[in-house]
Amino acid sequence: MSAGALAAVEEIALTRGPSGLGFNIIGGTDQDYIAHDSGIYVSSIKEKGSAAADGRLQEGDQILEVNGVKLEDLLHSAAVDLFRNAGEHVVLKVRHKVQNQQNGPLSTRSERDSEDSSLAMLAIPVLLSVAAFAIFAIVKYRQRM
């Protein structure tokens, strides 16, 4: 998260249901979700899970604490273990995703592909112009000989 972006921090209490807490996480010291950020983030919300029923937790939110235990400098598997062993009633301290903040890589593969193809489309006329000029120059050079 950038230093200038302010996001709301909220405590959310969930009760474990048949599908657990009803969300998946990504991140950790071994799995950067955001470059140079080892935080734990919500990657998806299960439709009929506890988190969806509560409605406050959203994809992209950063989970700061689970039952008062800070999620700092943890391997992904250690964070998963904390969630699994948190009990039936779980209190999460969450930093909500700032609107218009993009988590994950700075650009998606499709954005990069479209940028690359746009550059290629611009390069083709330039290359054709250079090739045409080169042929013209060779023809003129040979006429002088």
Rank of each mutant, 00 (worst) to 15 (best):
M1Y: 04
S2Q: 07
A3S: 11
A3C: 10
G4R: 09
A5K: 04
A7M: 02
A7W: 00
A7D: 01
A8D: 09
A8W: 08
E10A: 02
E10M: 03
E10V: 03
E11Q: 12
I12L: 04
L14V: 00
G17V: 09
G17P: 12
P18T: 14
I26Q: 06
I26L: 07
G28T: 01
G28L: 01
T29D: 08
T29A: 13
Q31A: 10
I34M: 13
A35R: 12
H36G: 08
H36P: 04
D37P: 05
G39H: 03
I40T: 08
V42A: 02
I45E: 00
K46L: 06
K46Q: 07
E47A: 02
G49C: 02
G49P: 03
D54A: 04
G55H: 03
R56G: 01
Q58A: 07
G60T: 10
D61A: 01
Q62Y: 07
E65I: 03
E65M: 04
N67C: 08
G68E: 08
K70W: 06
D73R: 10
L74I: 14
L74R: 11
L75R: 11
H76I: 09
S77C: 09
A79L: 05
D81E: 15
L82V: 07
F83M: 12
R84F: 04
H89R: 13
V90E: 00
V94R: 00
V94E: 00
R95T: 00
H96W: 00
K97R: 08
V98Y: 05
Q99M: 12
N100M: 11
N100G: 14
Q101K: 13
S107L: 14
T108S: 15
R109D: 09
R109F: 06
S110Q: 10
D113H: 08
D113T: 09
S118K: 14
A120G: 11
I124Y: 03
I124A: 03
V126T: 13
L127S: 05
A132W: 14
A132E: 08
A134W: 13
A137V: 10
I138Y: 15
I138K: 15
Y141Q: 05
R142L: 14
Q143W: 12
R144W: 09
R144M: 09
